[in-house]
């Protein structure tokens, strides 16, 4: 445990000193601030931020995560030559990566809202949902990045896989859902579609935000089925639960591989 904290502290400092991290925080800050400057309206700003969050956070977490894992390989090997528990070393690495990333996002997004206000009072839960979704996505995709780095020896291959994985979750998966709905259009597809979204963390985050932004559309005909599920206690528990599973599963898998790995 003590080792974890030490490693976390080291990684945290190391990552935070990274120029990319600064750029990442500045990116969110500039985007949100610019949206406020040009658009002005808080609800519009949040809508644009939602797209950015769902697209950029998984990408950066994956790419930066794999890059960082590959680059610190020698450091890891050095540490492993010491009497350090592999488990705690891995936990420290994950936290040391995910925390600064999440922090950069939260600070970058929150500051302009603090300065300009959230507009209407009803917008506060939306901002909270946005930040929560961002943090979850960071945790999940950093874990996936570490998994990729642990599994693939080759750096180039690892990068390729992480980009592909991002493309799959961010874009292709929704295409598959659309395809499935159109193919089986003769059947009631509401339930299968809900189940399908549970297997994509980006979709889960998107729906959580959709419940804030598009509640009015969701209350229309079929939409009401979605609202009924995701808006109900069961639905919230299920979607939150699957986000937790999504956080834990790649993490535990990567941890196992890391412990077994022959460096």
């Amino acid at each position: 445990m003590k080792t974890t904290l030490k490693i976390l502290k080291y990684e945290f400092h190391n990552v935070i000193r990274n120029r990319w991290m600064l750029a990442y925080a500045l990116f969110f800050l500039v985007i949100s601030e610019a949206l406020f400057q040009f658009g002005g309206d808080a609800s519009k700003v949040m809508l644009s931020l939602m797209n950015v969050t769902l697209l950029i956070i998984p990408l950066v977490s994956l790419v930066f995560g794999t890059m960082y894992a590959y680059n610190s390989r020698e450091f890891i090997e050095l540490l492993l030559s010491q009497p350090v528990d592999r488990k705690w070393l891995f936990v420290g690495m994950h936290a040391g990566l995910a925390l600064p990333l999440a922090l950069a996002f939260v600070i970058g997004v929150t500051m302009p809202f603090v300065i300009h206000g959230v507009g209407e009072a009803g917008n506060t839960p939306t901002v909270v949902a946005l930040i929560g979704a961002g943090i979850f996505l960071t945790l999940i995709f950093v874990a996936l990045a570490l998994l990729i780095a642990v599994v693939n020896e080759d750096k180039g291959r690892g990068f390729g896989v992480s980009i592909l994985l991002w493309l799959f979750f961010a874009v292709i998966y929704d295409g598959l859902i659309l395809l499935a709905t159109l193919t089986f259009r003769e059947y009631p597809m509401e339930q299968p579609v809900i189940v399908m979204t549970l297997f994509n963390p980006i979709d889960l985050a998107r729906i959580a935000l959709m419940l804030q932004f598009d509640i009015s559309a969701l209350m229309g005909y079929t939409g009401a089925v979605f609202e009924e599920f995701f808006g109900s206690v069961t639905g919230m528990v299920v979607s939150f639960g699957s986000l937790v599973v999504w956080t834990a599963f790649p993490f535990l898998l990567a941890l196992r591989r890391f412990i077994q790995k022959d460096f």
């Binding site: 939602m50 697209l55 929704d174 159109l182 597809m189 809900i194 979204t197 959709m210 598009d214 079929t222």
Partner: peptide, 16 residues
């Protein structure tokens, strides 16, 4: 035409 696709609202794929 296919109401269940509403769940894809604001997806990047749809935006494309």
């Amino acid at each position: 035409r296919h109401p269940p696709t509403l769940i894809l609202l604001r997806s990047v794929f749809i935006d494309l």
